[in-house]
Amino acid sequence: MKELRYEAPADVAAAVALLSRPGARAIAGGTNLVDLMKLGVETPDLLVDVDALDLAGVEDTADGGLRIGAGTRNSDLAADPRVRSRYPVLSRALLSAASGQLRNAASTGGNLLQRTRCSYFTDTSKACNKRVPGSGCPAVEGLSRGLAVLGTSEHCLATHPGDMSVALAALDAVVHAETPDGPVEIPLVDFHRLPGDAPQTDTVLPAGSVVTAVSLPPSRGVSTYRKARDRASYAFALVSVAAVLEVEDGVVRDVRIALGGVAHKPWRATLAEQALTGQPATAESFRAAADAELAQATPTAQNAFKVPLARRLVVGTLLELTGADL
């Protein structure tokens, strides 16, 4: 790690001013940033402690939703009674992520901004377009088993590694941030980017910004999160599914599906949602909807297994939500 300064700003405006300096990075729980600093992937010379901003806490909103402060720890959010009873998909996603120790440290804002765990990104002896733009992507012809199958580019196969953001994508969450040009609200589904020819940029958040909160609209339907991984616990998703389902008289009235572990961003499965809305809530329609989404997959030989895995996981998750006996 290189030598660095540390500042604990008094308010959000001061944090934005500090973060607008080159070489500055925001730190909250540090679970991702400190690790990347040890690896030499992140080399900040100024850390701005956004925990000093007192942004933790979950509040009810006037419209019946929730406002989650960016400093809220993953463990507190997962255990919040309102999240557990009204947004189980979010509790389940958080509880499936990382370990008890990491969830106690990891913040909501930091979780949104965590970097990919692609092994080429974290290995500074290798090329990586995300870490060193223009250096190349060894994953295309190398190790890609854990990497993306949707929305990929020739420049990057990295995935967004998180679980929380996948649930937030299915919940139509909105990210609130203070930027150097003032406050912004960005729908979660638009917050993370696809790699295209600029994989070094993970999100649309302008440089120098501080994420202040995430808001959830009022809860609807039933929801849950399922995650397929190589170990039973404490592993990143190979594929995960967040689903919110409303069924009336056996017909799908509304459905929202997001996939994790398969793309550079939480992947909202809009084609599947369109295919399913108005259809009978049966395994057959669920399979057709999953196929409609996954037809656009561009897997490598190593990660082609993710496509049928995602299909089965979507169908299984939706069946679980209909109360079908699995």
Binding site: Y6, G30, V34, S75, Q101, N104, A105
Partner: peptide, 22 residues
Amino acid sequence: HGQCGACTVLLGGRRVNACLTL
């Protein structure tokens, strides 16, 4: 790197990885 848990301590009564905490 926060993967093994051997450094676990309580911070304000809650367990965290001391190796990833500045």
